[in-house]
Design a protein around this nucleic acid. Structure first.
Lengths: 214, 214
DNA sequence: GTCTATACACCGATAGAC
DNA sequence: GTCTATCGGTGTATAGAC
């Protein structure tokens, strides 16, 4: 009865325009950052007039927030798939590192966007900011819980949980944000199958060695 | 004989305006990134008219390059002070991690700027880009050499040098770029004496455990 | 070496027709 | 839901007086 067509082809991208705009803006924000992207460019790529964007998002900031939230939620979802891994805490951390690298490797915008969301803090304001923070907190809580569990059971050595989380981010997310440096350093793109495998192995070894009891 | 006063008060900041502009722009670029900073704001803080900046720097990009280069050169200089540390390769890596953290802790703009220089690659073009790349390469070469040396002598286990460098950057630089996240995670700013100490200890343990032979 | 004035493009955002 | 037209403001950069 609505004037809008809410009945969808089922299976076909309902996406409306909203999802399409988010997907189009995502790589631009990832590469250029919030300030570096103009809505004109986004609109052009979507195939809309600039003003039409404002029908779907009331402001540029809210579009950016929508992009970030989608990334964080998806990243968290990918980790959650491994929540019930094996028995030991260390095995779960290993599985999460594996899932994290897979997710970053499959989505080249995720590394830069996640990194930006972590150190460019003066873009989002309280209303949208809270959504992004909440998504991030879920990820942190997930890891913290398992670290505590492992330390309690004596499986993992005593270490500072916040510093460990920072280290895990630095070891996992950062390398997938620095694509060009990675390429210069490694000789081949970090997004190549070969380097993804190498990165995983490197990361796993650091986790195993860094976390095991003395 | 020159019309400009090239004779300096000796000890007093010669700085002319150039250095002052760089120092003023540095924290702005660190927080907001290249695209997020307007020359109007820089000029205001320096106490000049906007147009006067162009007398000292022919373009915004060259100012940004000058800021980045200064940071990279200074960072490299701080590492170089420990070049002749102790005897063993592992001790030198330890000393460099120590110096790196000290430098990042003393210069809150360095973390964000270094991180930006590593993953925002489409800002600088070949002429200025080469200067920044060269400064970065000196740091990488320094570390690579010592890693190779340690691996050759059997003091350090066999590992991928590029991936290890990426890991060291992620473990050392990244945490000092994410000030607000650090604060939310840690409870107190990463730039507090207490957290600097904690970060160092954490980092040292990861290096010792991650690099030692099986 | 600093200033005022200006050029010209683009910014995010709004109004209102269709 | 998309469009055209337009708003006020800012962006980098230049010209030229002082």
């Amino acid at each position: 009865m609505a004037t809008h067509n809410t009945d969808l082809p089922a299976g076909e991208s309902p996406a409306s325009s909203r999802a399409k705009i988010i997907e189009t803006a995502e790589p631009l924000f990832a590469r250029q950052g919030f300030a570096g992207v103009g809505l004109r460019e986004v609109a052009e790529r979507v195939g809309l007039g600039k003003s039409s964007l404002f029908h779907h998002f009331p402001s540029k900031v809210k579009l950016y927030a929508a992009v970030l939230e989608r990334v964080l939620v998806e990243f968290d979802r990918r980790l959650s798939e491994r929540e019930r891994t094996a028995g030991t805490a260390l095995a779960r951390l290993h599985a999460w590192a594996d899932a994290g690298v897979d997710t970053l490797a499959e989505n080249p915008t995720f590394g830069p966007l996640l990194l930006r969301s972590l150190f460019e803090d003066d873009i989002l304001a309280p209303p949208e900011r809270d959504l992004v923070d909440a998504a991030f907190d879920r990820i942190v809580a997930r890891i913290s819980r398992t670290l505590e569990e492992g330390m309690a059971s004596g499986e993992i050595r005593e270490l500072s949980i916040p510093h460990t989380i920072q280290s895990l981010i630095g070891l996992t997310v950062y390398p997938f944000a620095s694509d060009s440096l990675g390429q210069r350093l490694l000789g081949s793109p970090i997004y190549s199958a070969e380097q993804i495998r190498a990165r995983k192995q490197h990361l796993f070894e650091f986790i195993a060695r860094g976390f095991s009891v003395p």
